[in-house]
């Protein structure tokens, strides 16, 4: 079991597609630093020299990093493309294994449960890393430019409001908020990328399988936002954003995790058993 996990992890992290996905993510998050953060920071210094700084709260790391929130192109682009980026490294290999004789060989030599477990772990971890590493890189680079001033609600410069999830934590312990949110992004990205497993049985094209979590997220987002503002909190594209443009509901986030996890695990156990029999 451990050898197959090791092998799948090696396949997930030592491949060109992992590097490509990571590079695309890092380019977008670094572009945010040079297109948005640096000009805003320089503009602020200039404005302070011209008009003085009385009662003008300075830019803080917590509203200047890519998850700090605004309507900038890079932020929207990164979080929109995230369900696609996370599937690039390893998610499509399940389809390839299934369509080639690889899965049949595994079934003949050992139990398929081990293979499914290894696949789930490797897809989950590679997707989580692709989602979070560019964000951490952005956070580190922005932290080298902008000081981490404590967020204060009365400044009106921070997107987290009374309606947001973990609002008190953000204003009291912003670093813990960031850590928890990055963990949430890691886990949700991992779960979303695992959707390729059920889709591999429905769709007969590798590229379409890889695109399926992205298409599903975009379709769900469109449908839910069309429904109502409250329903939009269930959209994975909204849950992934630390700036919470639509305030998140902890119940909706928990429900999303439970449903995704249960669906993927049940499907994988069922398929592992069924594929083994036939």
């Amino acid at each position: 079991m451990s050898s197959i996990i090791k092998f799948e992890l090696h396949r997930a992290f030592h491949n060109r597609m992992f590097v490509i996905a990571l590079t695309i993510g890092c380019v977008i998050t670094l572009a945010h630093v040079f297109i948005t953060t640096v000009p805003e920071f320089l503009g602020q210094s200039e404005a302070r020299e011209l008009y003085g700084s009385k009662n003008a709260y300075p830019l803080s790391l917590f509203n200047s990093w890519i998850g700090g929130g605004s309507s900038d192109l890079e932020i929207n682009l990164y979080f929109l493309l995230l369900p696609l980026l996370i599937c690039i490294p390893h998610a499509d290999t399940f389809f390839s294994d299934r369509s080639s004789s690889y899965l049949r060989n595994i079934a003949l030599r050992s139990e398929l449960k081990g293979y499914f477990a290894a696949k789930i772990i490797s897809i989950f971890l590679s997707a989580g890393c692709v989602a979070v590493i560019p964000l951490v890189l952005n956070l580190a680079v922005v932290a080298m430019i902008v000081p981490a001033f404590q967020p204060i609600p009365a400044t009106g410069m921070f997107t987290i409001s009374e309606l947001s999830m973990m609002d008190t934590l953000f204003y009291q312990e912003p670093f813990i908020y960031l850590l928890l949110f990055l963990t949430l992004i890691f886990m949700l990205s991992g779960l979303l990328s695992l959707l390729v497993i059920p889709f591999s049985y429905i769709i007969a094209n590798k590229t379409l399988v890889m695109l399926s979590p992205f298409a599903l997220c975009a379709f769900l987002d469109f449908l839910l936002i069309l429904g109502s503002f409250e329903l939009a909190t269930f959209s994975p594209l909204r849950i992934l954003r630390p700036d919470q443009p639509i305030p998140l509901d902890p119940l909706a986030v928990t429900a999303e995790f439970v449903i995704l996890l249960a669906a993927i695990l049940c499907f994988s156990v069922y398929r592992a058993h069924k594929d083994e029999v036939y």
Partner: peptide, 11 residues
């Protein structure tokens, strides 16, 4: 106008 009231994350 520079004065505001604040409670938790509300202001």
């Amino acid at each position: 106008s520079s004065i505001s009231l604040q409670s938790g994350a509300w202001s």
